[in-house]
Design a protein around this nucleic acid. Structure first.
Length: 284
DNA sequence: AATCTGAGCAACCGCAATAAG
DNA sequence: CCTTATTGCGGTTGCTCAGAT
């Protein structure tokens, strides 16, 4: 039976032979590799960490025979190879948490990632930059501006909450992350009902709604009900005031107005990564 | 079919904080 | 204390691929 050491030395041999073929030949052969990791390198790193544990990355890189910097090894391990890393799309719960925690802490990616088990700071950072900042750009807002934060709080988050509710109704069980993802809203520093900031800043960025549509200027009944149902269903302490006052009279349109009868589309529970574009599509 | 463009993501870089000698 | 090495973090880059033209 092969020991871990045997496996490592076998991989080392394979790696060195493939690297000789793949790489340019270097005078001292100590040129560090860059770019994407190969399967052999991954295996080498995995087995080395399995035998010796994490840490001492520079030493690890040398000892394992990896022609990589310690930093590179650490990054590869933490962001990709670590066993508890979650792959795949972020769930609405996770998206909700990210949005909230970012509003509290800003670009403290590692701190945010600490609250999302299995997710890395890199992944969250990428999510923010590619998905969230894209929306800010489309709205001609700074992604760190109060108006955009308000826009997220008032419109994007409630819809995510409903999506969570729909999903959990289907599954009838709620994970701890779901609980935390929803319950945070109760503790958010800027409540949705805090119109002192949101309404004023938002009104300058969104299209005006005709006066006779002002009845729409409220949170969707579907949303209101869903929050209620969600809380009773899952016995979570949710501040309904949040829902009922979330979109104030000052705000010139509502979620329900935005998308009419199809305000959440037909595929509410299908994709786990809900595209923010759905929210802003009315502007197009 | 070829080319262009943009999204998504993995990986790198620079800097700061911390640990070790 | 001072220096050096290591680690961790956030910003940025560059590659790949899919969709648009």
């Amino acid at each position: 039976m092969k020991t871990e050491i045997d496996i490592i030395s076998e991989i080392k041999q394979e790696t060195s032979s493939t690297q000789c073929n793949e790489e340019e030949q270097h005078e001292e052969g100590e040129e560090l590799r860059r770019g994407p990791w190969t399967l052999e390198e991954d295996n080498l790193l995995i087995h080395y960490v399995a035998c010796h544990g994490e840490g001492r990355w520079n030493l690890l890189a040398k000892s394992a025979g990896l022609k990589r910097t310690g930093k590179s090894c650490r990054l590869r391990w933490l962001n990709y190879l670590k066993p508890d890393i979650k792959r795949g799309n972020l769930t609405p719960q996770e998206q909700l948490l990210i949005l909230d925690l970012h509003s509290k802490w800003g670009n403290r990616w590692s701190k945010i990632a600490a609250h999302l088990p299995g997710r890395t700071d890199n992944e969250i950072k990428n999510y923010w930059r590619t998905r969230v900042q894209k929306q800010a750009k489309q709205l001609n807002m700074e992604s760190n501006s109060q108006s955009f934060i308000d826009a997220i709080r008032c419109y994007y988050m409630p819809i995510l909450v409903q999506k969570i509710e729909q999903n959990s109704t289907n599954s009838t069980t709620m994970t701890s992350s779901e609980v935390s993802a929803v319950s945070f809203m109760d503790a958010s520093p800027t409540k949705l009902g805090d119109t002192s900031t949101s309404s004023m800043s938002l009104s300058s960025h969104f299209p005006e709604i005709p006066e006779n549509n002002k009845s729409d200027v409220c949170v969707s009944p579907a949303y209101e009900n869903s929050i209620d149902d969600f809380c009773s269903l899952h016995s979570c302490d949710y501040d309904m005031d949040l829902a009922s006052t979330s979109v104030s009279d000052d705000i010139p349109f509502s979620v329900s107005h935005v998308a009419g009868d199809h305000w959440l589309g037909d595929d509410v529970s299908e994709d786990s990564l809900w595209d923010m574009d759905e929210l802003w599509q009315f502007r197009k």
